[in-house]
Design a binder for these strands. Sequence first.
DNA 1: CGGTATCCTCACGGATACTG
DNA 2: CAGTATCCGTGAGGATACCG
Lengths: 119, 119
Amino acid sequence: MPDNIQCPDCKRINEVLSRVGDRWSFLVVFSLARYGTLRFNELKRSLGISQRMLSLTLKQLERDGLVHRTYHPSIPPKVEYTLTETGRSFHEPVNALGLWALENLDKIETARRAYDETV
Amino acid sequence: MPDNIQCPDCKRINEVLSRVGDRWSFLVVFSLARYGTLRFNELKRSLGISQRMLSLTLKQLERDGLVHRTYHPSIPPKVEYTLTETGRSFHEPVNALGLWALENLDKIETARRAYDETV
DNA sequence: CGGTATCCTCACGGATACTG
DNA sequence: CAGTATCCGTGAGGATACCG
């Protein structure tokens, strides 16, 4: 790497991650991909997320074109969320990350304990 | 989804992501995977990260067993960082995410503008 | 060069209450 | 049910200064 330039892609990757790279966005996409369609409170229970953060996260994801929102004007109201095509394509790397996480949690905890003992 | 239980994997995924799922960790792993070995200040310039955050991020990644640190006691000192095997395996999903980010930045910005106009 | 220490700010995010 | 509004605490993270 030439030492006076930045990692050429990191800046752009950073931009995208700062939009859809937070933990709640990951988990919402992960959940919607798994279950297809979920209502607001189903997502809320599913993720253990606060009402406020879910509302904010869903609005961002809708704005960025990853999530589609369908409002059924019944009483009580019913709102369903699904992934858009872009959202589904985002699911692939998100899922890969989730699987890696599940597979490596133990390894990380072991490494962490080992590290802490040497200190 | 049964409506009274949580997304079964989300809790564990959340745990791992809360450790290695921050943006700086992603970018450090992404950079180290691409360039192999980098010194502290090379990483710093490469990522546009503050000295403090890079120091903290590297220490976490070393602790979690994703990054290996080699100290050369010369004058001036020289410290090189590489990925461990776990770190390299982490690179796969991180890279997938990075590539997705690069491919979809435009699409996201377009969706965002469209959304903002309807409001 | 490769850090640590300190200070300071602001955004993340929970708790609670209220509404159509 | 599906939000919005408000308040508030904590922690992420930059800026700066200093050190071996």
